[in-house]
Simulated assay, not measured.
Amino acid sequence: MTAPTAEPFVHPALFYRGEEEYVAGTVPFVREGLEAGEPVAVAVPGPQLDVLRAALGDAAADVRLVDMTQAGRNPARIIPRVLRVFADSHPKKRVRIIGEPIWPDRTGLEYPACAQHEALINYAFEGRDATILCPYDAEGLSEQALTDAYATHPVVISGGRQRSSPSYAPEHVVERYNQPLTTPAGAEGRAFGADELPMARYFVVEQAKRFGLSGVRLEDLALVAAELTTNSVVHGGGAGTVHMWAEGGQVVCEVRDQGRLKDPLAGRRPSPPAQPGGRGLLLVNYLTDLVRVHTGPDGTVIRCYVDR
């Protein structure tokens, strides 16, 4: 995988320090889009959304406003469920989007998925008439997050000045955060093949209940387990193992098999309505609060986190 060309897609990172710089870097971007007749969406954390709503005044009514802490809780669903759904609803127009998927309260567990998301935007929108501006809190985020922003964005705006990134290499970020995932020693596990699929799903549900999951969230995880275990049988060598454990306030379901994910955008492309199948990983991303993936010559691990 090589870095995509930038045009006609434009993907700048905005480094801001404080509310004044945030407003100065985002509000003109929105107003310019509206004046040009471009559909505009803003997907940022709730507090920042309030700031922009107030700064835009009446113009906010013409902007699609999205709380990223909810819509982007799982970074793997931001491309299909936030960015692409907006762009695809305006197929004949250039769209303008502000997307802030990384904020200081993101955990170290979430960050690798966030960095990969920012890298994969460049491939998901290659050739599209779109501009996606990604704000970065230069005071609140780690040095690593800012360094990665240079690698995932071809253009960086800082202090009111715009320049080409000297280290743009999104493919390196995708690979760097393709980190091995070690199953905890105390996790309960089951091996499965085609004949054991019902047993594997029953195991997931019973373990999830034991860890306090119930209601719709339990139903979501049951569906996720069904998709992942079926994928292992169909695409992952005919068998796999599933492990379950509790971690903080989350229930974790992990499926391992001998397959290899060759498409880094698997599960991040909206499926055409007429297409039969092909929605398994997309559904997994929609229904969970975090998905971590490691794939390589020895197989694939998909680890899903669901809030209790």
Rank of each mutant, 00 (worst) to 15 (best):
L146I: 06
A151G: 04
T152Q: 06
C134Q: 05
A138L: 07
T152E: 09
V155Y: 09
I132R: 10
L146W: 06
T152W: 12
L141K: 00
C134W: 00
G140A: 08
D129C: 00
S142F: 04
D148H: 02
P135S: 07
S142T: 13
P154V: 01
E143C: 00
P135M: 04
D148R: 01
E139A: 10
E126W: 10
Q144L: 13
A151H: 07
A130E: 09
P135V: 05
A145K: 03
D137F: 03
A145I: 04
H153F: 14
D148W: 06
E143N: 04
A149N: 00
Y150D: 12
P135I: 08
A138W: 07
D129R: 14
A130M: 12
A138V: 06
Q144D: 14
T152H: 08
V155W: 10
G140C: 09
A149Q: 00
Y136E: 05
T152D: 11
D129L: 10
Q144I: 05
V155G: 09
E143Y: 01
E126G: 12
A151Q: 13
R128W: 12
D129S: 12
Y136C: 08
I132S: 08
T152L: 09
R128A: 14
S142E: 03
A151S: 13
P154K: 03
A151W: 05
R128H: 13
Y136W: 13
D129M: 12
E126K: 13
Y150W: 09
I132P: 11
V155I: 15
R128D: 15
H153G: 14
V155K: 10
L146K: 09
G140R: 01
P154H: 11
I132F: 10
R128Q: 15
C134G: 07
S142G: 07
G127T: 06
E139D: 15
E139F: 02
